[in-house]
Design a protein around this nucleic acid. Structure first.
Length: 474
RNA sequence: CGAGAUGUGGCUCAGUUUGGUAGAGCGCUACGUUCGGAACGUAGAGGCCGCUGGUUCAAAUCCAGUCAUCUCGACCA
């Protein structure tokens, strides 16, 4: 077998083992005893809360309202849209009994809520004046996956699902893209993760959708993770559910529909994009603890100074004092394992010099700073950490995207490494499957790019002007 | 779903081949000494050996089933 080139040299040799190891050691999750359902411990929950609160705010800024739909969907309702049910049927969990009594109609535990939303929309929409309806819910859904891994693929999925209806195809499609852009900005700016935006191919798109927009991120092992999606449905779906409205012209039309979602997979992405051999490396904007103060020596003098600094920073940052009775070395290692962006060390030596020690998690740099400058110093460091996290990820990202033009090159590359491969593609499912079957690289997305010169399909050589990203994926 | 592996105090594991009173290190608790990269001393607590059944005088150990976890692959997105 050919030797595989690891994307991260030396440090993370067995990426899968490293991932599960970090999850447990950093106290993000615990296994529950039910396959595919993990317990998100406070540290993970807190990170998810930070993620949800940033996104929830963004959604509300553009007029999205939160709603709450039931978790059960009657079988007959789910059956209505053929493509949709075909896509989900194999992985639906069914409730057949209520207490001792068998139900007259099985209820499915929602795998996603398109049908419930559309059936609701049909009851509340009459006129173009009722549109658009921009709804979202934070909830969990259930998909009976055969294999699972915490945050990447699970049976219970914690997520946000947005569902909107509009009076025109253009407005709906634009909205779908608007959401995709919110995801993009969030991932790039808050999570410091570089990404590729584009469309899924016909065979990879969401069950029942007309267009599936996707955001693909590259993990440190070179595999791709679909981190967010936004779907445009046209009005096929709403026709089935009779989401009819009267237009301005007094005609009748069916509403144009979108749905979009992002899940706790983002936590998996954070781990696998930024983490290193010592554990998590968290982006400051979502880190449960942004700054940890480690007092050196348990003296009154130190205690006093530590609480002074804590009080100075607490209103602006998520900050904690590590007061456990462990040795400082242990505390240092722990703060690194948990990926806390900034560590402040304060000891007698510092107090007499009127300084403190600031250590960054991202690049391990240790700096001695004056107390007077602490506020500016922290702000500036946080910004620099974000920049550095993004840039290091981007560097790795770019060096693992290959533009290839021949099957020979593809084969040679696929044999030795996992990366993103970009090539011309004629648009046929046949060529798509060829690559998948032969090299195990799936089509990830057709990127949004303009002015692509004509080239020839990497498989069949047919002239085309579409490029496609291929990668192995989670 | 296919192939392989694992399950023993909180954690990492030994013990299983060849059945005979449950072990270690770390962690934990108390007290004391420490504190600038995983500190030390003394005393102590903690285990239906994943679960169910079978074989046996006797099962952590053998057999069967089952559940969960991990790795690789398939499926899915």
């Amino acid at each position: 077998m050919a030797h595989r080139i690891p994307v991260v040299v030396q440090v993370i040799e067995d990426f899968s083992k490293w991932y599960t190891d970090v999850l447990k050691k950093s106290e993000l999750v615990d296994y529950s005893g039910v396959r595919g359902c993990v317990i998100m411990r406070p540290y993970a929950c807190s990170m998810w809360e930070n993620i949800t609160s940033i996104l929830d705010k963004r959604f509300k800024e553009i007029g999205v309202e939160n709603v709450s739909m039931p978790m059960f969907i009657p079988e007959s309702m789910l059956q209505k849209e053929k493509n949709h049910i075909e896509g989900f049927a194999p992985e639906v969990a069914w409730v057949t009994h209520g207490g001792q009594e068998e139900l007259t109609e099985r209820l499915c535990v929602r795998p996603t809520s398109e049908v419930m939303f559309c059936s609701h929309f049909s009851r509340i929409v009459n006129s173009w004046r009722d549109l658009p309806k921009l709804y979202n819910q934070w909830c969990s859904v259930v998909r009976w996956e055969k294999s699972s891994r915490p945050f990447l693929r699970s049976i219970e999925i914690h997520w946000q699902e947005g569902h909107t209806i509009h009076e025109s195809p253009g407005e709906a499609n634009d909205f779908s893209l608007k959401i995709l852009n919110i995801y993009k900005e969030f991932l790039e700016e808050k999570l410091c993760i570089p990404l590729i935006c584009g469309k899924k191919t016909e065979s990879e798109k969401f069950a029942g959708a007309k267009i599936t927009y996707t955001i693909e991120c590259m993990m440190k092992d070179g595999k791709s993770l679909q981190t967010a999606t936004s779907h445009y449905f046209g009005n096929e779906f709403t026709k089935v559910f009779n989401v009819k409205f009267q237009t301005k012209e007094n005609k009748s039309d069916f509403a144009y529909y979108t749905s979009w979602g992002i899940t706790t997979r983002t936590i998996g992405a954070i781990i696998m994009v930024h983490g290193d051999k010592d554990g998590l490396v968290l982006p400051p904007d979502v880190a449960p603890i942004q700054i940890i103060i480690i007092p050196i020596k348990d003296s009154n003098e130190v205690k006093f100074k530590v609480s002074e600094v804590f009080n100075l920073l607490r209103t602006k940052y998520r900050i904690k004092i590590d007061e456990k009775e462990e040795s400082v070395g242990c505390k240092f290692a722990n703060s690194e394992l948990r990926g806390i962006p900034i560590r402040i060390e304060i000891g007698p030596r510092d107090i007499s010099n009127n300084v403190f020690v600031l250590v960054r998690r991202d690049n391990r740099k240790k700096e001695i700073c004056k107390f007077e400058t602490i506020l500016e110093k922290i702000e500036c460091t946080i910004n620099d950490i974000k920049l550095n996290l993004y840039n290091s990820a981007l560097k790795r990202f770019n060096s693992n995207i290959l533009n290839l033009n021949s099957l020979e090159e593809f084969e040679k590359t696929a044999r030795i490494r996992d990366c993103f491969i970009k090539s011309y593609w004629c648009g046929s499912e046949k060529c798509e499957n060829y690559i998948k079957d032969k090299f195990g690289y799936g089509s990830r997305c057709i990127p949004f790019e303009e002015n692509i010169e004509e080239g020839s399909c990497i498989v069949c050589n047919k002239k085309c002007d579409t490029k496609l990203y291929w990668a192995k994926s989670y």
